[in-house]
């Protein structure tokens, strides 16, 4: 079963929850895999004493134009929906703007004169790490300067071994493509929010996004006790299950800041999270894919 841990707003405790659920599951003897899908800012691995076992590059293909064959007809430019081909036919200038290219291959199809070949350009890496000898941590890491992490996220999720019982997907923030790509492959989505107006606004937006995708979801309120109770009210109105609440405690923030797994210091939280996951598996586990 794949469970995405998402948040809309950044910094609500998504990585805290996903790393702690993963750690708790592993210690409980479950074959769990954690995939860090926040390819723009991957951090989950730092919480574990894990050993890098493999790295694979994720590429896309960008066009290379052979100007000796090019007739400057402009068809490739016309096919390109990303303005990545710059052309000035009268002075015979044609250039690929690689930063804008999405690697869709339309220009290659468009060219009738065999003037376009393609080369691989790296977008990022998928790294697999082993914990106690098991390759159970996967990280999507986008190269600095790349526009979109989507294809790296896809590649990382594909890397998951079919033997895994529970897969935790630590999702990127926001509600646009990277988030959608991550939750699209999940069977269940846990939203982590904080009980503040900003937290609620982003939660609402995330829930709306998910509605179009027909995925079951539930909410963990982190830093409960701060802010107000509008999030609880919203969950009741919408009929969304409140999975558990993690109290606001400066100690949690301190452990987290040092890269420690909070559950090992505060067993109560481990129990809470295990209970949450067991309930999700009981209710939604059969839909596993």
């Amino acid at each position: 079963m794949k469970i995405a841990v998402a948040s809309g707003k950044g910094g609500t405790g998504k990585t805290l929850i996903s790393t702690n659920i993963f750690d708790t599951l592993i210690k409980n003897g479950t074959r769990a895999v954690l995939v860090d899908c926040d390819a723009e800012a991957p951090n989950s691995i730092a919480f574990f004493d894990a050993k890098l076992v493999s790295t694979s590059e994720v590429y896309h293909n960008v066009p290379v134009i052979d100007t000796s064959k090019c007739t400057y007809c402009g068809k490739c430019h016309e096919y390109c929906n990303y303005n990545a081909i710059f052309i000035l036919p009268p002075v015979k200038i044609i250039q690929v703007i690689e930063d804008l290219c999405h690697g869709c291959g339309a220009c290659t199809v468009a060219c009738e004169f065999d003037a376009i070949t393609e080369k691989q350009v790296s977008l990022g890496q998928v790294k697999t790490y082993a914990l106690n000898g098991n390759p159970s941590l996967i990280e999507a890491r986008m190269n600095i300067g790349v526009m979109s992490p989507v294809s790296i996220i896809k590649a990382a999720i594909k890397r998951v071994d079919a033997q895994a019982e529970v897969v935790i997907l630590d999702s990127p923030p926001g509600t646009s493509c990277p988030f959608v790509q991550t939750v699209a492959s999940a069977d269940y989505v846990i939203f982590v929010t904080e009980p503040t107006p900003f937290g609620l606004s982003d939660l609402r937006q995330s829930v709306e996004t998910l509605k179009g995708m027909n995925k079951p979801c539930g909410v963990i309120i982190n830093r409960a006790g701060l802010g107000n109770n509008q999030v609880q009210q919203y969950l009741m109105d919408e009929g969304i299950p409140l999975l558990t609440e993690i109290p606001f405690d400066k100690k949690i923030a301190e452990y987290y800041s040092k890269g420690e797994i909070v559950c090992t210091k505060m067993p109560k939280i481990a129990e809470q999270l295990l209970e949450v996951v067991n309930q999700i598996i009981e209710k939604h586990g059969n839909s596993s894919n």
């Binding site: 950044g10 910094g11 990585t15 723009e40 800012a41 951090n43 730092a46 919480f47 986008m142 600095i144 300067g145 790349v146 526009m147 979109s148 992490p149 990127p172 923030p173 926001g174 990277p178 923030a253 987290y256 800041s257 040092k258 890269g259």
Partner: peptide, 26 residues
């Protein structure tokens, strides 16, 4: 948040950039 396209669009050509960070590993 992040370092992708929306961030690049936010900082391209601005006069000053301020990064707010916090003392955590992440």
């Amino acid at each position: 948040p992040g370092i992708g396209c929306p961030v690049i669009s936010t900082i391209t050509g601005v006069d000053k950039v301020l990064i707010v960070t916090e003392p955590t590993i992440s």
